[in-house]
Design a binder for these strands. Structure first.
Lengths: 208, 208
DNA sequence: AGTATAAATGCAGTTCCTGTAAATATGCGG
DNA sequence: CCGCATATTTACAGGAACTGCATTTATACT
């Protein structure tokens, strides 16, 4: 299935062309000053085609490949015997990103672009927030798998949500390092440095 | 300064009228199906006036009063001798919200509305993300005040960011309880239940 | 009462985005 | 290779959010 048909090749090419044009324009003139029409002109497609591909202006910048974990990874996490939810979740995410990012140059350019235009950063955060919802589900599944229920712990979902928050923060931290170091670190190194950060934070607290 | 002038009273009235109309319409028909023109018709102002007041459609729903801590509270937090960053930050935020929310009914309606329309929830999260940036600054100030520098700890800002993440999660948890319980809990109760939640999470971990 | 200032409005125009139908390109069975 | 089914692209029309600017209307101040 999915053999190398002309149609799919053209589709991929068009998509890439539009994205490249969009990123280049935004890098030059800033996200706000780029209109969809400009992108269309630069990539030689109609406006309607643009929206057919990306659905929205922000879509061409932030809505790239979803980079979601594979079902196997997810199952491994849910039924994970590991004693650390943080560690396991983080590890799964790191694994996913490291292994499924094809075009590191474009990835880096987008990362840079997003972090230099406030409007894009805002939208990226919103997108991340949505993805986090999914992870909350996974953590809940894991809790349930371990026999924990809302009966015993009414605020189990809040607990899951906070776990995801923390891991998400660690992830951001790790991504920064990864991009800054030109993608040289291994997944193990990322996990280690991030988890030592979390550990330092949570263990140095004296609770009220 | 700021005495009870007719102008300011009218301004407040108009603002309230628009907001009420907007929330009511959205509660009836859903956020997506309400247009700015509908809100304007219902509150009898021109579209231009609407944008003069709220700047955007989402503004009338999420961008209410900023509800930021007073300078005194902030200073108290930054120079706080308390041993718990979590506890102190959370306490400051709870204090702020409890004391500066004038119209609980409208507050509750907005809260409900936001959590039942995905688009609004997304935007609310984005707004929260921006506010969190400010809190990261406060936490950094506190760290500096305690003599911690980026020299000793290169990822100090990441640490601050994660602290804010955790507190923000706890805040969401507390707000849920507060709204569900019809605003009966005191600030102390909120702090206590939230901090016990965080404690449970972070102490039950076995780190890799 | 008269004037400075603030607020509200009308209107034109830009941008993002959607529905629909027509044109064009590709795949596929004969 | 031909003709048809299906996918892709496009043009066109229009809705809705939003901005700038000039003008009118309401409030404040002396």
């Amino acid at each position: 299935m999915s053999m190398e048909t002309l149609r799919s090749r053209k589709r991929a090419a068009t998509s890439q062309a539009i994205r490249r044009a969009a990123v280049e324009l935004a890098l030059q003139q800033g996200y706000e000053n780029v209109t969809v029409d400009m992108i269309c002109a630069a990539s030689m497609v109609s406006q309607r085609t643009f929206f057919n591909y990306f659905g929205s202006k922000e879509g061409v910048y932030v809505g790239a490949e979803k980079a979601m974990p594979t079902p196997e990874l997810i199952q491994g996490f849910v039924e994970g015997k590991g004693s650390s939810v943080f560690g396991d979740l983080f590890s799964m995410l790191a694994q996913t990103i490291v292994s499924t990012e094809p075009d590191l140059a474009l990835f880096q350019a987008r990362h840079q672009l997003i972090h230099q235009s406030p409007e894009l950063l805002k939208r990226e955060k919103a997108r991340i927030g949505e993805v986090e919802e999914t992870f909350v589900r996974y953590v809940m599944d894991r809790f349930h798998f371990q026999g924990r229920t809302e009966e015993q712990t009414p605020d189990l979902e809040d607990e899951a949500r906070m776990v995801v928050s923390l891991v998400s923060g660690a992830m951001r931290f790790a991504m920064q390092k990864w991009v800054a170091g030109n993608f040289t670190d291994t997944r193990e190194e990322l996990v280690r440095s991030a988890s030592s950060l979390i550990q330092r934070i949570t263990s140095s607290e004296h609770w009220p």
